[in-house]
């Protein structure tokens, strides 16, 4: 292996960064959809459905993502009969895990909307679905946005774990380059700075939103 120049390995790290972004974006979409579904189950009128929603949240929040990813990586092919690429399996695992946290954020946001709003909407003749969509959710979003944004930062950081099931994300590239370039510190520092560049703006946005939204409600 010849000596890699800085621009060579920087390009490989950027390739990894792209994968990290793709995995995070799809992971986020999955986590929001599953999270909203689980939050709905958790608040159902039926006890059994509520219990199942609660079980999902408790189980996924009480085991490490690392264990879940490895488990899923081996179980998914058995469960479905198909073989999955590492990237798909990793994204599914990430989405399933973070969904439990999103579900709790959604639930807290919905519960924060005063009961009267919902009752008033129902009494004007709106259906339950209309009430949720037009009255409750738009108000709940305000409460959900700041914690949802920090959960997104957590999701991006957690996406680094998929490198251990073979997804060629930023950390994976950094690890391979660390072995090849004989400059592990340089490579990993650059990788860490790339993660920082990805997450820091979101943190700043979250802080700004938090201040703005609390000011408005106060």
């Amino acid at each position: 292996m010849g000596a890699l120049s800085f621009s060579d390995y920087f390009r490989l790290l950027i390739d990894g960064l792209e994968i990290t972004i793709v995995v995070s974006v799809f992971g986020l979409i999955g986590a929001v959809v599953i999270g909203l579904t689980v939050a709905t189950l958790r608040m159902s009128r039926f006890r059994l459905v509520r219990f199942l929603g609660g079980l999902y949240i408790d189980f996924f929040r009480s085991t490490p993502l690392f264990a879940q990813l490895l488990w899923l990586f081996y179980v998914l092919p058995i469960l479905t009969g198909f073989s999955f690429s590492a990237q798909v399996a990793g994204t599914i695992g990430l989405a399933l895990y973070e969904a439990a946290f999103f579900a709790e954020i959604f639930r807290a946001g919905i519960l924060a909307v005063p009961r009267g709003q919902r009752e008033a909407a129902l009494s004007t003749g709106m259906t339950r679905v209309q009430t949720s969509r037009r009255i409750v959710l738009p108000q709940a979003i305000r409460t959900m946005l700041p914690p949802g944004t920090s959960a997104t930062v957590t999701l991006i950081k957690d996406s680094s774990l998929v490198s251990f099931v073979g997804v060629t994300d930023l950390l994976y590239q950094a690890n391979s380059l660390a072995a090849v370039t004989l400059d592990p510190i340089g490579v990993l520092t650059v990788a860490a700075l790339l993660y920082f560049a990805l997450c820091y703006p979101i943190t700043v946005a979250a802080n700004w939103m938090q201040r703005r939204l609390t000011l408005k409600t106060a």
Partner: peptide, 12 residues
């Protein structure tokens, strides 16, 4: 430390 993954920190 809050905006970089723990896993990256550990390996670093």
């Amino acid at each position: 430390f809050r905006t970089t993954p723990l896993l990256v920190q550990i390996i670093w």
